[in-house]
Amino acid sequence: MKTWIDIDASELPRLAPRTHPLWWGILSAVAIEAAVVANLLASYFYLMAQTEGPWPPAGTEAPPILWPTVFLVLLPLSSVTMWWAGRGSDRGDKRQLAIGVTASVGLALLALVARSFQIASFDVKWSDSAYGSILWTITGFHFTHVVSAILGTAVVAVYAWRGYFNPARQLGVIVDTLYWYFVAGIFVPIYLVLILAPRIL
């Protein structure tokens, strides 16, 4: 059988940070976690529908609005610094990248402090009622995600300060940023359901 060369792969890029399969992998991970959040929120509404009378149940205050709102502002802010870091990385500006990701980690740590204040001010324990259980679970789930995003980005920051990344080799930055946007973005529906809805409905 005759064999002929159709495509010469030696001309194709080896480090293609924008079209790398890992980007799709992280996107799939995001889809899974979004599905988990959807299940958690559906469970919240199911328990709400099953409860006769007010929701949160009588005698329980809805979570205070101050600290989650601080959290809601800080997380997108940290996404902006992530985006700014990525722009630096695209231009080969290693310093801007390093400062940007470090700032994001810092902002997210601040956000975690705000989050901890909020959790401390919950009016209900997880073992008090099904409302308490689902409230603590959703909050804890998101808290864990912020922690893992911070840990991952901290590693990226260490490598950024050591000058590892450059425009060709910035896959780590790009996928970490994608995950970061997800962790920041997924808080919006959580905030709307857990914090805002009980006040306006």
Partner: peptide, 21 residues
Amino acid sequence: HEQNQRAMVSGLSTTQRETIV
């Protein structure tokens, strides 16, 4: 088999694990 020829990709490394995307 019918056309008695086939096309292929060349230029992949033999010293590191490469696959085309």
